[in-house]
Computed example of a mutant assay.
Amino acid sequence: MSDTSITTQDIVQIDELQNFGINAADISKLKVAGIYSVNTVLSTTRRNMNKIKGLSEVKVDKIKEAASKIISIGFIPATVQASKREKVIAISTGSKSLDNILGGGIMTMSITEVFGEFRCGKTQMAHTLCVAAQLPKEQGGAEGKVAYIDTEGTFRPERIKQIAVRFDLDPDVTLDNIMYARALNSEHQTELTDQLGNELVHGDYKLIVVDSIMANFRVDYCGRGELNERQQKLNQYLSKLCRISEEFNIAVFMTNQVQSDPGASALFAASAKPVGGHVLAHASATRILLRKGRGEERVAKLQDSPDMPERDCTYIISEKGICDPDD
């Protein structure tokens, strides 16, 4: 295989290491640890690989050396990075006005976070995206499957079926294309994400939903005494999601809870701010604040984006999922 760059999004399965002197037993150990591609080998630190049972420092060095022979990493011309960005796919939220302020929809190769109080449409948006991601690209989809990690037990298959009818998709086929898991705690949530590697390496998946990102971490780590440990674990988990999104050209969509913030601006969401602190704020490329509007309307405010200005729009939640008020 000719040298390429890890930034070209060419995913090389880990079995390719056998052609460079790595035995099948060591490759199996990597897979057990959630490492299914050569790209992931390169992005995993030696320190973490040394923690894998059965891999010595000598073996880790040998594996790293073999991986670097398959994929070259380092500085590249900005034109190569521009070519990579051309592969980004925008997945429709179901609302044209919301897609517009996002620059087309929820983007692959990055993490998008929505936060807000209860009944503002976070989970409904997640359900709508699960269906929209399966649509053809010319209809605002990504022509891919979805992985859904549910931390609060709010996933509803019957809701997916309703939204699928709106987009003229077969409800049962739509459900078959969603891989669902109920995360019992923060450790299980991390393990589930590691397990995704075996599925993602084939390129069939285009969306990962985590609903919600902080629920388990808030329960498992209580009080100020455990805050530092919680943030460290959260940072490691978010780093994993970020790597997955870039490596496999996948959109990561997270919902988040809010907490009281009496000192916030009185103009917009005066009493609520997203949980997770700066760790979560820095990990999310795009942050959207959702709130209740007048009547059935909801308001989405784009608070942070690498390429779009701060703007807001209105949408509604109907049997068809997230949509515009005039739909």
Rank of each mutant, 00 (worst) to 15 (best):
S5M: 14
I11S: 06
I14W: 00
N19E: 14
G21I: 07
G21M: 03
G21F: 05
A25M: 08
D26S: 14
V32C: 02
A33I: 08
G34N: 10
I35D: 03
S37C: 12
V38T: 04
T40C: 03
L42W: 06
S43M: 13
S43N: 12
T44S: 13
N48G: 00
N50M: 14
K51W: 06
I52Y: 00
I52V: 09
I52W: 05
K53R: 12
L55W: 00
D61A: 15
E65D: 15
E65C: 11
S68C: 08
K69W: 07
I70K: 08
S72D: 13
V80M: 15
Q81T: 15
S83K: 14
E86I: 10
I91F: 02
S92D: 03
S97K: 13
L98A: 06
L98G: 05
N100L: 13
I101Y: 07
G104H: 08
G105V: 07
M107N: 13
T108A: 02
S110T: 15
T112P: 03
T112V: 10
E113Q: 11
F115S: 07
G116L: 03
E117V: 13
E117A: 12
F118L: 05
C120K: 01
K122H: 11
K122A: 07
Q124S: 11
M125F: 03
A126W: 03
H127V: 09
L129E: 09
L129H: 09
Q134H: 08
L135G: 09
G140V: 02
G140F: 01
A142R: 09
G144F: 03
K145H: 07
K145R: 13
Y148S: 05
I149H: 06
T151M: 01
E152N: 04
T154V: 14
T154L: 10
E158Y: 09
R159I: 07
R159T: 05
A164K: 00
V165T: 14
D168I: 00
L169C: 09
D170T: 04
D172R: 00
D176I: 00
L184Q: 11
H188C: 08
H188D: 15
T190Q: 10
E191Y: 10
E191K: 10
L192V: 08
D194G: 01
Q195Y: 03
G203M: 05
D204E: 15
D204G: 02
Y205D: 09
K206A: 11
I208F: 04
S212Q: 00
N216L: 11
F217Q: 02
R218H: 05
D220M: 00
R224D: 14
N228C: 13
N228G: 12
N228F: 12
N228Y: 11
R230E: 03
Q231R: 04
Q231L: 10
L234D: 02
N235P: 01
N235E: 09
Y237K: 04
S239N: 15
S245C: 12
E246H: 02
E246T: 09
A251Q: 02
F253L: 02
N256K: 04
Q257S: 08
S260D: 11
S260I: 13
S260G: 06
D261R: 07
G263M: 10
S265V: 02
S271C: 00
P274W: 01
P274L: 01
A283P: 03
S284Q: 06
S284I: 07
T286I: 15
L289T: 00
L290Q: 05
R291W: 05
E297R: 12
R298W: 10
L302M: 06
D307F: 07
M308I: 02
P309W: 05
K320P: 01
P325R: 04
